[in-house]
């Protein structure tokens, strides 16, 4: 230190200060800490599958435990199971209150899970661990098609469900390419209407710890990961970083194009087609292969609204065309003396 000249010290301080500012302003830093963030900055995450090992030293991965702990207060509080009706006229109901402890799948009480597959790539077997939760899509069909507007994309990026308004029709789960939202019966607005005949409960899923983001903190999963496999930051920087990382490892990105783009980007050394294949194989071997809560990874999956959005021009032209035809008809008729 004594050898360090005053000038050099200042120079280094300035450089490290600038570096710190860059780090502070960006990655793993929350909403308001971001330099010049303010309104309009959307956030996203990178999940680096080369770093995630599924917390093999733990019984339950750290992100899963942290998520459950952090979001406990938002979990469903349904009436007791015996008081929950079937979804008339069907003889079934989606009730998870006795399976709260499940961590190997998505449920209303478990918003993140870590999947594990073994993939053959370049002549060797690679074990891949994949933390799964809501992808927080750029144009979320789940939110767009909710008939009650009970789901929406926040200005910061997370897609959140309004648990007080949700009726539990589960349409959001159907249009989600990954079937992420999970339904719990016996709770929510429908219980106040005609629970025997209408509605099905409330949908639950990851909200990217929206309450933390608003406070300027990072999501619990990001904070808890012992290997720093999940990175949080402004959407655009995240995108850039994912590309750099993929280039660095000669790997692949998932989420950039899927469903029209998501704010969760996976980076992997092995192609996602292979991961998807293995996940699909696992799912097919389950007692109920149709069961939701075990998301796959379909590559380049399209957005449910693509076809409908293609009709936009017709919709905008319709009133103009109607008016034009009316003008023509009325003119012709009046000219004819009618």
């Amino acid at each position: 230190m004594s050898k360090l000249s005053r000038r050099e010290f200042l120079k280094r301080s300035a450089v490290s200060g600038a570096a710190a500012a860059v780090i502070m302003s960006g990655l793993n830093k929350p909403a308001h800490a971001s330099a010049g963030a303010g309104k309009g900055v959307q956030y996203g995450t990178i999940i680096d599958l080369t770093k995630c090992d599924g917390c093999s030293h733990l019984k339950v991965p750290a992100c899963v435990t942290a998520c459950r702990q952090e979001n406990k207060s938002k979990f469903p509080k349904p009436v007791p199971s015996e008081e929950i009706n079937y979804y008339w006229p069907h003889k079934k109901k989606e009730d998870w209150q006795d399976k709260k402890q499940l961590t190997n799948r998505l449920t209303p009480y478990n918003w993140t899970t870590v999947q594990k597959v073994t993939v053959e790539h370049n002549g060797r077997e690679v074990e891949v661990h994949i933390p799964r939760r809501c992808m927080h899509c750029d144009n979320p069909p789940c939110a767009n098609i909710c008939p009650f507007g009970a789901q929406g994309k926040t200005p910061e990026g997370p897609v959140v469900i309004n648990h007080d308004l949700c009726f539990g029709g589960a349409k959001c789960r159907t249009v989600c390419p990954w079937g992420i939202p999970a339904r719990q019966a016996g709770v929510g607005l429908y219980m106040k209407v005609a629970p025997q005949y209408l509605g099905g409960g409330v949908m639950y899923k990851c909200d990217l710890c929206y309450h933390r983001i608003k406070k300027g903190q990072v999501p619990a999963c990001v904070e808890s990961c012992p290997r720093g496999a999940i990175t949080f930051g402004p959407r655009e920087e995240i995108k850039q970083l994912a590309k750099e990382r993929a280039k660095e490892i000669g790997g692949y990105i998932y989420g950039e194009n899927e469903n029209g783009g998501t704010s969760t980007l996976y980076v992997s050394q092995v192609p996602f087609e292979k991961i998807h294949q293995q996940l699909a194989k696992q799912k097919a071997g389950q007692p109920n292969p149709e069961a939701p809560g075990y998301p796959l990874m379909p590559v380049n999956v399209g957005n449910y609204l693509d076809t409908a959005n293609g009709l936009l021009t017709s919709m905008l032209v319709a009133p103009v065309a109607g008016a034009a035809l009316a003008g023509y008809t009325a003119y012709k008729k009046m000219k004819g003396g009618e």
Binding site: I145, T307, A308, L311, S314, M315, A318, P319, V320, A321, G322, A323, L325, A326, G327, T329, A330, Y331, K333, M334
Partner: peptide
């Protein structure tokens, strides 16, 4: 059903625009 909804809405908007303009002119 979403596609039907969109197409039917296009027809509806067309007819409503026609109706308003036609009777306004006349």
């Amino acid at each position: 059903t979403l596609l039907i909804h969109y197409i039917a809405a296009i027809v509806l908007i067309f007819a409503v625009a026609y109706h308003i303009v036609y009777h306004l002119i006349r």
